[in-house]
Design a protein around this nucleic acid. Structure first.
Lengths: 341, 341
DNA sequence: CACTAAATTCAAATCGCTTTGAAAATGGAG
DNA sequence: CTCCATTTTCAAAGCGATTTGAATTTAGTG
């Protein structure tokens, strides 16, 4: 059933029906009732392509994943982020669209996504320290919001981010307070902005206590379980191993734990661990007592905030850029203890 | 730049341009070159809404998540599945669209998604033993493919699935061969079809050896880490605890391991574990030697297959239903050993 | 060179909606 | 009962592509 047919059935013009359904005031309450009832009865709902064409709005938000970050799709953190975002999209009648993109195509894709009227706005994830995508989006004038920031980008953009630097500074300080001096950092990919900030926070804390940063104690890669395991194992087998380890995600922390246990060491005794905890639905940090001492910040919540920011921006393109810095909690769990003497 | 403008710039009719770009034969190679060059130069690409309207094809595949399964979004297994699917979508110029849906709306949504021309087909995930969605989709005549099956549905539909029953039968038999008699099953949600099949395979193996199924050794819930931990801990603290545990996913297996270790037991000695391993990118089952003995089947591959099936179906609606049953490998890892005497 | 067949190109209709500007209906005042 | 101001409804013009059927070119043949 399309608009024309419905209009014939009802004996009411297409104009009036469209108005009735879209809540315009210039239609009497009586006919609105009638139209709505009939729309339900005949199972009518407007064709998306047609209304996109007519209004220029697609009611769709794009999440573009470049090849370089396409593994993001399989990162459980990503799942929770978009779960949060989609709650908001749903409440506002937006759909969520994913595009995978080859790196070279990146600009083209944003370009064409908007030009082709496929999406009304875009969420950018996993920004690099210097991320050309931000420039591109800015230049194109597409409404967009970044999850995270891009330190070396001087474009003016809206973002939501966790205060990664202060979180990792505090975590490091906490370990220093416990007497640890050899503290390792098992970080995310160095190109990614959040990893850089965590590294900075870590360095700041060490330096403020006069502890030198030892490059043998710093690793960076995609935050898988196996990576956490390998990195921890390697470092723990060094001549002077760390007594504490900072991990960038629950998943690699699980790998770190595996390494620690395999070596016959005990968490919170010979080795302490603090991990960042994104509050992943399937990988909760224990129940009452957290498994790991952790810097905690809900990535799902970040998804909700980003989505709302973007919708606001679409509705009101001239509003000033929005910024939201979320502070992570430092929660005490069972994985930390005083440095072994 | 739209078609009309491009046509004016080139002094060629819109028809010819459209044909040139869409690879129709009735246009000379010379003009095709010219058109393609100009399209690139002026950064033209066709408006999606307009072509959807004209062709009736949206070049978009929908993944609908009902509220009941909306946690699927945060399930890491889901991430790998759609990563596989999206590889295929990309290669075929499809986009991927997600809709979250309230349960009551489910039928409406499928209905309207297709009717409104938003998507050309739908992938159904996490089907229940008896899943009305399949009936609905079938009735509506939307091209769709199911990841998994729905035992009690008599509709005729295309699907990709792992042979869960034989996988869990084999795993159970393997444990029986090792002398285990008290074998626990930490399963996924009972309403889900795959969990049911795994349970059946487990029961079959036990019965064929004359071992009774003990309901104290069977649990079912969403496959989180905490669930694996809680379930394992509770069972291991029973008066007559299991000596082996089957886990439905890597994630809950990690929880099981945590429980085992917390109780001072050793994996592969006092307690053996076999888990199903979906080959998740971020949660690989170790490197050379698998952490866990496992029934292994790549969910990413399943995603690729499902996507290809659906595209074939869209291209050729009258083709017979496709079915693909993937056999899981049983890979030997470090988590199993002979039953303690 | 004229004539027909094949290869190219084009003008116009169509997809289904929104929205503008005009027309019709309603109601209140004089 | 008119007349004018409001309400309410409508016909028609887009939106930007694809595609049909006709018109124009080009090529081949006698």
């Amino acid at each position: 059933m399309n608009l024309k047919e419905l209009s014939e059935v009802l004996g009411i013009s297409q104009t009036t029906i469209s108005r009735a359904l879209n809540g315009y005031p210039e239609v009497s309450e009586k006919t609105r009732q009638r139209v709505e009832q009939a729309a339900r009865q005949y199972n009518y709902s407007p064709n998306r392509g047609a209304s996109t064409l007519a209004t220029g709005r697609s009611m769709t938000i794009g999440h573009v994943l470049s090849e370089a970050t396409s593994h993001e799709l399989v990162n459980p953190i990503f799942g929770d982020f978009i779960a949060g975002a989609s709650e908001i999209y749903k409440a506002n009648n937006y759909d969520m669209l994913f595009s995978l993109v080859k790196n070279e195509e990146e600009e083209d894709v944003y370009n064409s996504l908007l030009r082709r009227g496929v999406v009304d706005g875009v969420v950018l994830q996993a920004p690099k320290i210097s991320d050309e995508r931000i420039q591109v989006l800015d230049k194109l004038g597409i409404p967009f919001v970044v999850h995270g920031r891009s330190s070396k980008s001087n474009a003016n953009y809206s973002w939501v981010d966790v205060n990664n630097r202060s979180a990792f500074r505090r975590a490091t300080e906490f370990l220093l307070d416990l007497g640890h001096r050899r503290i390792a950092l098992i970080n995310g990919l160095t190109a990614l902005d959040f990893a850089q900030r965590r590294y900075l926070g870590y360095c700041e804390a060490l330096k403020s206590r006069g502890v030198a940063v030892d490059s043998n104690l710093v690793k960076a890669a995609e935050m898988t379980e196996v990576y956490g395991y390998m990195a921890a194992k390697e470092m723990l087998l060094q001549k002077s191993p760390p007594t504490a380890i900072l991990s960038a995600s629950m998943i690699s922390a699980i790998g770190v734990r595996r390494a620690v246990q395999e070596l016959g060491l005990t968490l919170g005794k010979q080795v302490s661990i603090i991990t960042h905890d994104d509050e992943l639905s399937y990988l909760n940090n224990g129940e009452q007592i957290p498994i790991f001492t952790a810097t905690r910040s809900s990535v799902r919540k970040a998804g909700r905030i980003a989505a709302q920011m973007l919708i606001d921006k679409i509705d009101n393109p001239n509003a000033p850029k929005a910024e939201m810095l979320l502070e992570a909690e430092l929660v005490l769990g069972a994985s930390t203890g005083p440095a072994p003497r």
